[in-house]
């Protein structure tokens, strides 16, 4: 259906349909965020021999996050007198909008996708870089020392790890010869790129955890030193949008990892009867679980370790990976 729609002449009706489809995805993503937060708290709870949330909505705490969101909606919204008001208000929007925009390029299965961008991967990388501006803006506009430190650290970290992140996928582009995400998935019909590009996968995974500002790379919001980092001064629903941005990016990052390295909706041999969307969901959940697992396991790095790891280890490895992939392609293909 979407195929036909994409190839027909654009009209007001099709614009409306795209809007409705986008709104549908938005609702789905909000549902994911609600339960990803709960899952994270539950999984970390179990890993630390606790039970996690268990009061609201049955023994599993199924309504805990829903209650949290409703509470946030009713919280007073304070903007400090000393803050730069317009930028303070604008920052969460600038952080959130690209987080949702990147999802336009992601195909969830052969039929469930929203666009067929020829430059899908480049689009993802280019748009996701904009969020850094939102975070830096939020940190600066707060006129708070903790927020400024957090915002600056965040920007430094995100740009440092963006370089290896972007370079690690070049091997995949080389082997596929396309930036189109659908074509990248189709190229993995026989063998997922995880097995062809293992080095790239590890660089990508580490760099994506750093891009998401999650433990062990959560220096921008290191509670023990910076209180809460760039969103110290944010309260109520404005703060919720920064949180939402982080989890929407988790969704996007896990999706793109699934597509690039785990073969997207391609089934495992002999299990072809299970539909593609389910395969995508399974692989996607594994990645999300790994992210939560990492958070429960690893301690936070120091700022100097973080920077030297990004520039002195990941970047040379990513460059090496490009070279190896090019040579492999030259010899075998």
């Amino acid at each position: 259906m979407i195929e036909e729609l994409l190839y027909s002449a654009p009209s007001y009706l099709s614009t409306l349909i795209f809007f409705a489809l986008g709104a549908g995805l938005l609702m789905m993503v909000l549902g994911f965020v609600t339960y990803a937060i709960l899952a994270e708290r539950k999984v970390i709870g179990f890993m630390q021999l606790r039970v996690g949330p268990n009061r609201v909505g049955g023994p599993l705490g199924l309504l805990q996050t829903v209650a949290d969101v409703l509470k946030l909606l009713l919280k007073e919204d304070t903007i400090p007198k000393a803050a730069d008001r317009p930028l303070f208000i604008l920052a969460p929007v600038i952080a959130f909008a690209p987080a949702f925009m990147v999802l336009a390029a992601i195909p969830f299965s052969e039929s469930l996708r929203f666009s067929d961008l020829g430059i899908g991967l480049l689009y993802y990388i280019a748009i996701s870089g904009i969020s850094t501006v939102g975070i830096l803006m939020g940190g600066w506009a707060s006129n708070n020392k903790y927020a400024l430190l957090g915002g600056m650290r965040s920007a430094a970290q995100m740009i440092s790890y963006e370089v290896p992140l972007v370079m690690s996928v070049i091997g995949i582009i080389l082997l596929t010869g396309s930036l189109n995400l659908v074509e990248i998935v189709e190229a993995q019909q026989n063998l997922a790129y995880l097995f062809v590009q293992p080095l790239a996968f590890f660089i990508f995974l580490i760099a994506s955890v750093a891009e998401l500002n999650r433990t062990p790379f959560d220096l921008p919001e290191a509670e023990s030193e910076l209180v809460a980092g760039y969103h110290v001064e944010y309260s109520g629903f404005r703060w919720a949008f920064f949180m939402l941005t982080e989890y929407v990016y988790l969704f996007a990052m896990a999706s793109i990892t699934t597509i690039l390295f785990l073969g997207g909706w391609n089934p495992v041999p002999f299990l072809e009867f299970i539909p593609g969307v389910i395969w995508f969901a399974i692989k996607f959940s594994i990645i999300v679980f790994i992210m939560i697992w990492l958070r429960a396991t690893l301690p936070r790095l120091r700022a100097d370790q973080l920077m030297s790891f990004g520039w002195k280890v990941l970047l040379p490895l990513a460059l090496l990976n490009i070279f190896i992939s090019a040579v492999i392609k030259e010899i075998w293909f």
């Binding site: 190839y7 099709s14 020829g118």
Partner: peptide
Amino acid sequence: HLYQNNYLVVLMFLLLGILLPAVA
């Protein structure tokens, strides 16, 4: 048309990304 539609979708996603914070 595919090209036009793709960027129409992107535009709609941008609109939604701005609308959600604004409305909420």
